[in-house]
Design a protein around this nucleic acid. Sequence first.
DNA 1: GTCTATACGATGATAGAC
DNA 2: GTCTATCATCGTATAGAC
Lengths: 185, 185
Amino acid sequence: MPRLTETRKELRRTQITEAAVRCFDRNGLERTSIADITAESGLSAGSIYTHYRNKADLVRAAAREVLARRADVLGEYAAGDVPPGPDELLSRLIAAIDPAEARVGVQTWGEATTDPAIRDIVVDMTDRMRAMVHDCVMAWLVKVEHRAPAEVRERAAPIAHRVMALYQAELLYTALRSPTEETAS
Amino acid sequence: MPRLTETRKELRRTQITEAAVRCFDRNGLERTSIADITAESGLSAGSIYTHYRNKADLVRAAAREVLARRADVLGEYAAGDVPPGPDELLSRLIAAIDPAEARVGVQTWGEATTDPAIRDIVVDMTDRMRAMVHDCVMAWLVKVEHRAPAEVRERAAPIAHRVMALYQAELLYTALRSPTEETAS
DNA sequence: GTCTATACGATGATAGAC
DNA sequence: GTCTATCATCGTATAGAC
């Protein structure tokens, strides 16, 4: 089984999930039918089902992709050599929010309420993001604020928690701004 | 058209929405069928459709009810004679969160992403709650902190915004704690 | 107003040709 | 691997009796 085939298979999968995400943005996770995704992706129903066991499987893969992309964006800011303070970090995170991704992200929150698999994905990604923020805050406390390592350990956690909470709230507000408003200025 | 009939009609409506909310908590807004609601409410499909035009109409009414109940709880705290500070207020709001209502609440967020009617309900209720928090914070700034009215006016808004954001984030975390965990301690 | 029974449409998923 | 065509199921909404 050559590697090339493996990567092509993966490309098809992302082609499907990306088309699915566009549909989700318009109609929501549940109201999106397989027919919608075939129309958006240009593929057929049969093709989709060779790459995903069923619709729930596809939704989970799409959710994982959207959340992972957000986590990656967050990772870029956390990896800088001059760590930004909490307020600056939060501002940058908010500025990097993409409205469409925000909407699908909030949809996954709702779905996580009833689908344990999606729930695990959401909490995993949230924990991962919070850990990144935590590292960033710790680096800032040490390098910029010149705090002692012992003090840093207990002060970083609540700050990271708050930054994440405010970020997620902003994600919600962005998702709730109507798509029609989005185009305006 | 006597008032008694009118109130009875309203009672039936709430009987239906409350049964619906219990179903939503278990299976989500979309995965809940009319059959589920008939089973939970003890009523028949025909009866439900005499009280609600269609399923979307029912979902909107249920969403309004859940969010309004949360707003009312918040209103109680804001109306006290000795206004609590922002931290204390937030702690109380969080302590008052009911897990089941949190789950359905987060589901409505996801639905608001695609259904304009639900979106309006969610932002209306959020604005209403934020205004209550704003009033509470203003009262606290004046009565406890003894700030000047002019200063209060510009300081209250950002504080209220943050309290609401942190409250909603906590709502999300509560909703994401699995129902199985909920029973434990 | 409430019920039972049902029509009708939509949708997830599969079979089989290419 | 991908397509077309199709099936079986489920779910909304309605009709008509009581």
